[in-house]
């Protein structure tokens, strides 16, 4: 398989993942996106091994390894930092920061018949509002996008460091 074919397939996979992500949200079914992402990741891995017109040598492998390592280290620090802050924010009521959390008597109900009407997630009153829990999802998306940019940034950095775009005078 030619590498351009692989890139086209990767693009189609990305578009299909966006569609499946949207479908997952519409149907409130996380299994759809989780399973399809796993399947597409395995398929891409298998397809990549069948590319015939790409030369991969020790320098390009080193660039990939260093990029992956730097991205993982940065992402781990970023994820822990943001998630610790989010956890403290959500559970701040138990830590004594009452102003940041939902207060049933002061704030309007999110659901017309109260939190007890939510069948899949029984939230005890005056503890964790669902609106705050939603912040987790938004922050996870932001983190995933940031990690993607960090990966691209490190890829450029190491490719430049190991002379990927250098031109010879010959």
């Amino acid at each position: 398989m030619k590498k351009n074919t692989f890139y086209i397939i990767s693009g189609l996979f990305a578009i299909s993942l966006l569609f499946l992500f949207w479908l997952s949200i519409l149907l409130s079914n996380p299994v759809i996106i989780a399973v399809s992402f796993l399947i597409e990741a395995v398929l891409l891995f298998v397809l990549k091994r069948h590319i015939t017109d790409i030369v991969q040598d020790e320098r390009s492998i080193l660039i990939e390894m260093k990029t992956a390592s730097a991205t993982i280290k940065t992402a781990a620090v970023l994820f822990v930092t943001v998630n610790l802050a989010m956890i403290v924010y959500v559970f701040s009521d138990s830590l004594g920061f009452h102003t940041l959390t939902y207060n049933r008597s002061l704030n309007p109900m999110l659901f017309p018949s109260g939190f007890e009407s939510v069948p899949y997630f029984p939230v005890p009153p005056e503890m964790i509002p669902i609106s705050v829990l939603g912040l987790f999802a938004v922050m996870q998306i932001v983190l995933l996008v940031v990690v993607l940019f960090i990966y691209i940034g490190f890829q450029f950095y190491y490719a430049h460091k190991f002379g990927e775009w250098d031109e010879d005078e010959e």
Binding site: D57, S60, D166, D168
Partner: peptide, 14 residues
């Protein structure tokens, strides 16, 4: 290997 690898070695970048 790739031409870029030879170039990088010659230039002392790798």
């Amino acid at each position: 290997v790739t031409r870029q690898t030879i170039l990088a070695i010659e230039k002392g970048k790798y």
